[in-house]
Design a protein around this nucleic acid. Structure first.
Length: 130
DNA sequence: ACAGTGACAACAT
DNA sequence: TATGTTGCCACTG
């Protein structure tokens, strides 16, 4: 079971990323008050692959999260990176052949502040947090 | 309890 | 610019 609070917080934030915009693992970590947990954020998204069957996690726009350089970080499986690139392009985010988002700063999501996150996690606004 | 893992990031060459 | 190295953190068996 992986109903860990950290994972759920990551998912709650990712759900808020607007279509056509992106953010980074590190920025999400900062929003959650754990500035050094960027890797853990990536780990949380990686874990989604094992939750595909659960509809609770079916609507998470994981493709909108890239590394701090505006580049897709998935290494394997092979096709995964191309899949993420395709999903982003489909929503208007230009991704170069080098898997880097063109004009990254232009599509960067402003993000959430800790007060908003605290609200989301405590009022049940987020579908995943009953 | 503890060592291993990985969709990171910052820094050093 | 392009690699390589090091620190980090939450989760897993």
């Amino acid at each position: 079971m992986s109903t860990s609070n950290f994972y759920e917080q990551v998912y709650a934030v990712v759900r808020r990323i607007p279509r056509g915009q992106v953010t980074s693992y590190g920025r999400i970590a900062q929003m959650l008050g754990a500035p050094n947990a960027a890797r853990a954020v990536g780990y949380a998204l990686r874990a989604l692959k094992d939750k595909e069957a659960d509809p609770t996690y079916a609507d998470i726009p994981w493709q909108r999260v890239v590394n701090n350089q505006g580049r897709i970080s998935i290494v394997n499986p092979e096709h995964a990176a191309q899949e993420q690139a395709a999903l982003l392009r489909a929503e208007g985010v230009p991704v170069g052949d080098d898997l880097r988002i063109v004009n990254f700063d232009r599509y960067l999501w402003s993000g959430l502040h800790w007060l908003e996150i605290d609200d989301i996690m405590h009022t049940g606004q987020d579908p995943a947090i009953p």
